[in-house]
């Protein structure tokens, strides 16, 4: 029983990062499908959202929920600005060029952060959970599983956002336009869809989702630098490859699988402490083997390209 509680505790501990990972995965997938590029700046854009939230809560003393919304809005706007000013003008840049532009954007934002935020000069920034870190309840007696209210809040926000976005994707006109743009931008444009707006809004939504992810994530860790979301972003990309970028739901399942793998390896590490240094390497290796087995992803379809 004790052992099972220990395992469950690891599972509960992973949930906030898993929520952040799922949201980041959706953001990455959305941009991959509408703009056909891997947005490496996703992590740093969401980190800026988190910076806005924490800066105004910590330095200026506004309530966290208000600054969190402000952070999400800022990330939304940054996403739109990037699309309108960079990607719309770089329409004829090839796939590699687009990738490199997003890499360049990382450098730009990382360089900008210390000039904009006072927080970047702090020696240490405390973790910023919505509800105080020690609050929570126990299941199963004194040695049971401790669940923080933050975890439940994170899970709730993520589920609501995911359900809402998938209903919108399937049922609304906006969702139809996004799916059409994702499958073929030129034809979607011919059919009277304003693909420019769709792409811009997709970038905005991706930014906003990233900001939500970052704000959930920094409840558990501290906002050390602009690179704080790198691990989440890597997991999001891996989830995309594992689930296959062909569908919207595939990467989400991929993200869940990756984080559950983390839990399993974490449980194994309790018994074999030597492995704990190699934890992420093992997860990565398993994911790579899965990709080797299914190159198009677990839920992917073989994409046929015309020459």
């Amino acid at each position: 029983m004790q052992q099972i509680f220990a395992y469950l505790q690891i599972l509960v501990g992973v949930i906030p990062s898993m929520c952040a990972g799922i949201l980041a995965t959706f953001a990455v997938t959305l941009i991959f499908k509408t703009s056909y590029t891997t947005n490496f700046a996703q992590g740093v854009i969401s980190a800026i959202g988190a910076y806005v939230a924490v800066e105004y809560a910590l330095v200026h003393g506004y309530p966290l929920w208000a600054t969190a919304i402000a952070g999400i809005v800022v990330a939304f706007l940054i996403g739109i600005v990037i699309d309108v000013f960079v990607f719309r003008n770089g329409r004829f840049v090839n796939v590699l060029g687009k990738q490199i532009i997003t890499m360049g954007l990382i450098s730009i934002f990382i360089g900008l952060i210390p000039f904009v935020f006072k927080l970047a000069h702090y020696e240490s920034v405390p973790a910023m959970p919505f509800i105080r870190l020690t609050d929570g309840f126990r299941i199963g007696g004194d040695n049971g599983v401790f669940i923080q209210y933050n975890t439940i809040l994170a899970l709730g926000i993520t589920l609501i956002l995911l359900v809402a976005v998938f209903i919108l994707l399937q049922k609304s006109k906006w969702g139809l336009s996004v799916r059409a743009t994702a499958s073929n931008e030129t034809v979607a444009g011919m059919m009277g869809i304003n693909t420019k707006v769709i792409t811009a809004v997709s970038w905005g939504i991706a930014g906003a989702f990233g900001a939500v992810a970052a704000i959930i994530y920094i409840g558990n860790v501290t906002l050390a630098s602009g690179y704080v979301m790198t691990t989440t972003q890597i997991n999001a990309f891996l989830a995309g490859i594992l689930g296959g970028f062909a569908t919207f739901y595939g990467p989400i399942f991929g993200a869940v699988i990756i984080y559950l793998l983390n839990v399993v390896i974490g449980c194994v590490c309790i018994h074999v402490p030597i492995l704990s240094n190699w934890k992420s390497a093992i997860v990565y290796l398993i994911v790579m083997l899965l990709v080797l087995w299914k190159p198009q992803g677990l839920f992917g379809k073989k994409m046929v390209k015309k020459v």
Binding site: V86, G97, I100, G104, S107, I108, F109, G111
Partner: peptide, 14 residues
């Protein structure tokens, strides 16, 4: 220098 590098990368690629 990072900022400068990033701006140059984006401008050069585009």
């Amino acid at each position: 220098i990072t900022l400068f590098c990033g701006i140059l990368v984006v401008v050069v690629v585009m």
